[in-house]
Amino acid sequence: MKHEFLAYETRDEAADFAARMASGVLAAAIEDSGKASFMVSGGSSPAPLFKRLATTDLSWDRVTVGLVDERWVGPEHAGSNEALVRQHLLTAKAGAAGFLPMKTASLTAKAAVEDRVQAYWPHCDPIDLILLGMGPDGHTASWFPKAGGLKAAMHAADGVTVAAIDATGCEVAGKMPERMTLTGPAIIDSDAAILLIFGEDKRAVLDAALKASPEDMPVRYAIDGLGPRLTIIWAP
């Protein structure tokens, strides 16, 4: 079965719906099992959603927030996804949630993989809700086309929740090519997923990705793998 695609006239409307959906999914998970896992992406698109969720009534002390991917920089760095999540989501009522960082004191992402696999695995069995983004090259998470480690990350063995990525030479990765990312199994096994995208350019990228191979535009792998558990939310 296919994913659901929802188009809204404004970004505020899209963020409002995404917040209602996210809080509903997390509340249902808490009611079912007493806890919930919420894996989130960085970038500019999620910020309006995060701000809405931060003030939402929810048993946040039963929620563990983790990252879909991370640049290998400290939380004091402007490029840190952890910093963005702490600034926009883990405030107000959502400040009671637990947080699971990806960046560690290890010098490289590769050196930290074993530790972070163990840390993330209990919260990815499966992930209750994952929030994905999409770049102009068709990447999601840190699955950059032609990146070093891409195939191993997308097709990791069961139980391998994170992987190191070397995005050297990938233009969209910019000057921070060393990354850690959730793997294919961790993402596509999620119980529910939101792909939140804004702008006509991202709509065009999505249309292209739905016709491309997963190797060329890796977001296609997540879209196909998640199927009806994925809701794509877009506004111009």
Rank of each mutant, 00 (worst) to 15 (best):
W60R: 01
R116D: 10
Y120F: 07
S59Y: 12
P75R: 05
D125E: 14
W121G: 11
I130N: 03
M134P: 00
T64V: 10
W72C: 09
S41Y: 01
N81V: 08
F38P: 05
A36E: 08
T56W: 05
Q118E: 12
G138Q: 02
L49G: 09
L107T: 14
F50V: 03
G43W: 07
V63P: 03
D61F: 07
A109H: 06
A92P: 07
L58V: 06
W60N: 05
E76K: 13
Q87I: 09
L84A: 15
H77D: 15
G74P: 14
M39G: 05
V117Y: 07
A109I: 11
G133S: 00
E82R: 09
G43M: 08
Y120S: 05
I127Q: 07
P48M: 01
M39I: 04
P136Y: 12
Q87P: 04
W72H: 10
R116W: 07
L84R: 11
Q118S: 15
V73H: 08
P136V: 12
H123A: 13
W121D: 11
L90T: 00
W121Y: 14
V73D: 09
Q118L: 14
M134I: 03
L100W: 14
K35I: 10
G34N: 08
P46K: 04
R116I: 15
P136D: 15
T104P: 10
V117R: 15
A112C: 08
L129W: 02
W60C: 04
R116M: 15
T91D: 04
L84M: 15
H88W: 09
D57I: 09
M134Y: 03
Y120W: 01
H77P: 07
E82S: 11
T104G: 14
L131E: 04
Y120D: 07
G133V: 02
A78W: 10
A83S: 15
A97N: 06
K35M: 11
V63H: 08
P101V: 07
E70S: 09
A105K: 13
S80Y: 08
S106W: 13
G79Q: 10
G138E: 00
T91Q: 10
D137T: 04
V117C: 15
L67H: 02
D128E: 01
P122E: 06
D128L: 06
R71C: 09
S106P: 12
L129R: 01
L67Y: 05
G42N: 03
N81G: 11
